[in-house]
């Protein structure tokens, strides 16, 4: 990566971080845990990287196995994260 590419990515990082700060400024206390769980599922976005890492040929390479390990773990994070958040929020509605 060159310096110019880095600057563009840093812009993305700074703006997205600011957005993250602003987005949840007024969250009610009952939603703390669901929000934490829901954003945990979003952090499973690393699954995109895991798919790309698994997209290599041959099973003799460590990089391929690391990719597959990452993909299983990220899939647990994503599927489990969204499902458990939904379960929590479903319970809230009944109240």
């Amino acid at each position: 990566m060159n310096a110019e590419g880095l600057i563009i990515l840093l812009y993305v990082l700074v703006l997205a971080s600011y957005l993250g700060f602003e987005l949840i400024a007024k969250v009610p206390p009952t939603l703390h845990t669901p929000l934490m769980s829901g954003s945990n599922a979003i952090s499973g976005i690393t699954i995109v990287g895991a798919i790309l890492a698994t997209n290599e040929l041959g099973y003799t390479q460590l990089s391929k196995w690391l990719g597959m390990l990452a993909l299983i773990l990220a899939a647990i994070n994503v599927a489990g994260g969204y499902a458990v958040t939904d379960r929590m929020l479903k319970m809230f509605k009944k109240k």
């Binding site: 590419g5 990515l9 990082l13 997205a16 976005i45 690393t46 995109v48 990287g49 790309l52």
Partner: peptide, 30 residues
């Protein structure tokens, strides 16, 4: 979230950076 974000820098991937930064920043505030 921050880890996913830095992985985005490794792979040069915007969606990882955006989603990672959102979680990283909102997580700190939360």
């Amino acid at each position: 979230g921050m880890a996913a974000c830095t992985t985005g820098f490794v792979l040069n991937n915007n969606v990882l950076i955006v989603a990672g930064a959102l979680v990283g920043a909102s997580g700190i505030i939360l």
